[in-house]
């Protein structure tokens, strides 16, 4: 199996597109949001692990 690394964030999509200096607001996901994403991947039979 190939390894893919991922990142889940909460962010403003437009700010990200038009802000060249990277100061757009970005928040880390809550543990519930991250768990939901991991669950969605695992339900499909993939191995998905959180990275601390």
């Amino acid at each position: 199996m190939k390894l893919f690394i991922g990142s889940l964030t909460s962010e403003d999509p437009i700010e990200w597109a038009v802000d060249p200096d990277g100061s757009a607001l970005l928040l880390n996901p809550t543990s519930a949001q991250l768990d939901a994403l991991l669950s969605a991947l695992r339900v499909s039979g993939l191995t998905a692990l959180p990275v601390q």
């Binding site: 991922g6 990142s7 991947l41 993939l46 692990l49």
Partner: peptide
């Protein structure tokens, strides 16, 4: 080169298709 968000998950998959299918399903 400015730091942005952290990596917070790792997935083992044969290719990108199963990841896409899993997320679309969710």
């Amino acid at each position: 080169g400015d730091p942005r968000q952290s990596v917070n998950l790792v997935v083992a998959a044969p290719n990108s298709q199963p990841i896409r299918a899993a997320l679309v399903g969710a």
